[in-house]
Simulated scan of single mutants.
Amino acid sequence: MSSLHALVTGASAGIGAEFARQLAASGCGLVLTARRTERLEALAAQLRERHGVDVACLPADLADPRAPAWLHEECARRGLAIDVLVNNAGYGVTGSFLSRPWQTHADFIQVLMTAPAELCHRFLPAMRERGRGRIINVASLAGLVPAPAGHTLYAASKAYLIKFSQALSLENRAYGVHVLACCPGFTHSEFHDVTGTREQMKGMPRWMWMDAGAVVSDALAAVERGESIRVSGRVNRAIKALVKLLPDRLGERLVAGGGKNFRDST
């Protein structure tokens, strides 16, 4: 019989690594995937030693359109049934839309939009057959507020994940499968180092930031409750509520005024 595992994408650092830690602490076996093999293997060794769980590492680049099918096939070949799917892999592309070549945007869309949808499509049928499954798509508060200039596709991709998760949740509740869009705000991770915006982020007040551990524990509790959208933290939930009350044009002006201090929009 296949053993039940959680598949976590983008598991080599940040929120993805924290999902791996907390799931392992609960006794869940893991399948970890990311591009950085050495980091994956180091995390896997740590989790095996600390929690005594089975951890498989399947390094892959989700910008490759073949990667989702390969991950599904490799899990099946190894007899690893995926009970929890965490679509966490992601990054940001700085600058305005036309300042980057199309292939950069195409890769971004593949990683943040196409790959999560395909992984859901491939792993969901078995979850429905077993009568239980959990899918967490890591979106962002950015998908719920007006989008600033720069990082042009980022908020759009997160809004897509939120709506996708909401519909998928409604379609699969009757089968025992819970689907959640996890929507953190500013979170301590390597995200801004990778995008080269760490200096801009130093201007953000401390109360705007959350710890990755708090984001993950909140998301895991929310998916068990059957929520379809979870905004992490009271400050971020207050921002979401406030934005709903503002006229669109005013919201856009506020974002345009403040966003330029924290974004590279060249």
Score class of each variant (00 low, 15 high):
76 A>M: 15
125 P>D: 12
244 K>Y: 07
204 M>F: 12
185 G>T: 09
87 N>S: 01
229 I>T: 11
202 K>H: 13
84 V>A: 09
13 A>G: 01
60 A>W: 01
215 V>M: 01
24 A>N: 02
261 N>G: 15
201 M>W: 06
234 R>F: 03
222 A>L: 04
26 S>R: 15
81 A>F: 07
81 A>P: 00
85 L>S: 03
195 T>Y: 04
37 T>Q: 15
91 Y>L: 05
172 N>F: 08
7 L>V: 03
42 A>T: 14
135 I>M: 06
20 A>S: 15
247 P>Y: 05
41 E>R: 14
52 G>S: 06
68 P>Y: 06
30 L>N: 01
147 A>D: 02
163 K>G: 09
45 A>C: 12
174 A>V: 06
57 C>M: 04
114 T>V: 15
4 L>Y: 10
38 E>D: 14
113 M>R: 04
151 H>T: 13
84 V>Y: 12
199 E>R: 13
123 F>V: 02
152 T>M: 13
221 A>R: 13
99 S>R: 15
226 G>V: 08
91 Y>S: 09
206 R>V: 06
252 E>D: 14
136 I>R: 06
233 G>V: 05
198 R>E: 14
55 V>R: 02
243 V>S: 15
187 T>I: 07
9 T>M: 07
148 P>R: 08
121 H>F: 02
67 A>E: 09
230 R>H: 15
185 G>K: 07
207 W>Y: 15
60 A>V: 06
49 E>D: 14
152 T>Y: 12
143 G>D: 10
240 K>V: 09
116 P>T: 02
123 F>L: 05
119 L>T: 07
220 L>P: 00
167 A>I: 06
20 A>H: 03
228 S>I: 01
265 S>I: 14
132 R>Y: 11
54 D>Q: 07
77 R>E: 14
37 T>N: 11
214 A>P: 00
140 S>N: 00
55 V>F: 00
241 A>I: 08
10 G>C: 06
22 Q>M: 05
189 S>I: 10
188 H>G: 03
232 S>Q: 10
244 K>C: 11
18 E>Y: 07
218 D>L: 07
36 R>S: 10
260 K>D: 11
58 L>P: 00
81 A>G: 14
58 L>V: 05
60 A>N: 01
58 L>R: 01
177 V>R: 02
214 A>R: 14
236 N>P: 02
72 H>R: 12
